[in-house]
């Protein structure tokens, strides 16, 4: 091999960059998100079910919220009829946070894990985390 000094340096750099994910996480605990459903309100529910299916909520909650806010603010519609035929007030504060009063243990779990930084909280008030909430 010729110019081996430079080329090996280059290759080491290349390998360093492409294998960065591997060594970047060495020794770091793999903390998987664990959204907690343990809030006083949810505890009291007989059947624990969100307004739509869990998977649907995981995938689409932001679109749902977006559609909600358009309906509420622009079309003065305030009630969501769920696919199960249930009715809900379309309100982040009154409906979502009513059950999910544990933002840190619920919202932030996945958001932090997937590095999603929603700007909801610039206006909407995070639910007050009562001592009883979400601590297991």
């Amino acid at each position: 091999m010729y110019n081996s000094g430079k080329i090996i340096t280059g290759l080491v750099l290349f390998l360093g960059v492409v294998t960065m994910p591997f060594w970047f996480n060495i020794g770091k605990a793999d903390v998987k998100p664990d959204p907690s459903l343990d809030t006083p309100v949810i505890r009291q529910m007989k059947v624990k079910h969100c307004i739509e299916s869990k998977q649907f909520m995981i995938d689409n909650h932001m679109e749902l919220l977006n559609a909600w806010r358009n309906a509420v603010v622009r079309n003065n519609k305030t009630i969501y009829v769920s696919t199960a035929g249930q009715y809900f007030t379309m309100s982040l504060e009154d409906t979502c946070f009513h059950c999910h009063s544990n933002e840190k243990q619920f919202c932030d779990q996945c958001h932090t894990y997937a590095n999603i930084q929603p700007y909801c909280w610039e206006c909407h008030v995070k639910p007050v985390e009562e001592a009883a909430n979400g601590h297991r």
Binding site: V41, K46, V47, Q86, T89
Partner: peptide, 11 residues
């Protein structure tokens, strides 16, 4: 999606 859902939401 949704199955039978008979709970009472205390919202």
């Amino acid at each position: 999606l949704a199955g039978g859902l008979s709970s009472v939401f205390n919202i």
